[in-house]
Design a binder for these strands. Sequence first.
DNA 1: CGCTATTTTGAGCCGCGTCAATACGGGTGG
DNA 2: CCACCCGTATTGACGCGGCTCAAAATAGCG
Lengths: 244, 244
Amino acid sequence: MAYPQSASVDIDRLRKACSRCSLQDLCLPVGISARDMEALSDFVETLGPLHRGDHLFRQSERFHSLFTVRSGCVKSYIDTESGEEQVLGFHLPGELVGIDAIYRGTHQCSAVALDTAMICRLPFNELSDMAREIPSLQKQLFRLMSRDLENSHSLSGQHTVEERLAAFLLGFGDRMQARGFSASHFALPMSRQDVASYLRLAPETVSRALGHFAEESLIEISRRDIRLKNRTELERRCPRDFRL
Amino acid sequence: MAYPQSASVDIDRLRKACSRCSLQDLCLPVGISARDMEALSDFVETLGPLHRGDHLFRQSERFHSLFTVRSGCVKSYIDTESGEEQVLGFHLPGELVGIDAIYRGTHQCSAVALDTAMICRLPFNELSDMAREIPSLQKQLFRLMSRDLENSHSLSGQHTVEERLAAFLLGFGDRMQARGFSASHFALPMSRQDVASYLRLAPETVSRALGHFAEESLIEISRRDIRLKNRTELERRCPRDFRL
DNA sequence: CGCTATTTTGAGCCGCGTCAATACGGGTGG
DNA sequence: CCACCCGTATTGACGCGGCTCAAAATAGCG
């Protein structure tokens, strides 16, 4: 597969991918020395800008790299037998994509940009080797993999429509905030159908539930623009610490 | 927490935990030299025999070790706000338990023996250090973590009762077979309620669906004893490659 | 300004959950 | 060996939450 990349590559930025990146607290190189950061940057390839619909990888392709989001938002999903897609997650800057491919050596899902996005490609063999050199990198890799597992566990519960939706909105807000944006006013990068699939609901059901929240003045919605007007009440609506 | 252990510890077996274990193809030490195996065994502590109801760890306890099942079956679950438990998985010999605790440093779920079980405790710091020494150990750690993630993704789809149940029975059979047991005749170590919770169904629904399968002669059930009489048809009943 | 994709709204229905009663089985003690 | 008990499993009746199908509204785009 040929990876998309901008025509004019800024070679300097490429080689200093990590050292110049503003996501150091969220992404892989947590607590890494400047020296190690340079070494890491040496084999990190930045891709993009990708546009809506551009794929990072597709289901059943051979696995050789993990990806992290640098900017924008990426959706991962599975094509089901019946032809629809099952959304697995939405990945914001600093998050790792493709972890589930390690086991079989084949991508188990596809990953596609939801909006204009910059992406880092991390060849897995090199990353593993480097993780053996740099303890804090290994640790962070384990942590990020563990986080994904924890997240997917929280989807497991039997929750009502409104619980799921409240958890999703609050969780998305929290994640935006961790990246320097507002926790209560943001633009969803994904369609209703994507939200619905992710929450294991019908699109109509999501639409209606959003409507209910709006009626109660818990939120304001205009298309994909969301404003959380009453986080406290939204929190009361979902089980303790349930965030998506 | 004091870990349960048998009164009379066979110190030799303890120190050679891995080298003498028959799970080398399934568990962590895949493709590891005899020398490294010894080193690994040095800090692996074997626990047990644990009995039904004994806990390996409990939700919200501090994380310091991963566990692997050596024999028997372990259930991991979350206590929900509403008082019921949400089952996350059933772990057979060679499988890693507690991975989701790495991220926060706190166990996100509890793990309990479903029957008489022998367990290995792997202090995570030592394990990480050793993974930096032994490439194939690091690789296997990544693989097992990735597998868990892949598994929990397959639970995500919107499947009917019968799809889920067929996938569960077939998957359990496959896993038993990988451990040298019959793929089509086995005793479920968990209650109907556990199965139901794991599949996100009501116990009554599980019971009825099992009944349907039995009526159609796809399976024979007597209490927890299950015989798969027609794997082909069961496979036809669940989406391609859907196994639990 | 029309065309299309997305979202919303409405009506009806069905699969699965809930509640309640019954059956079964394994253990215990007489 | 049987009587009793209690936890687990099964069976039945019923109701509802969310899905389906269909249509209307709205936004984005050339």
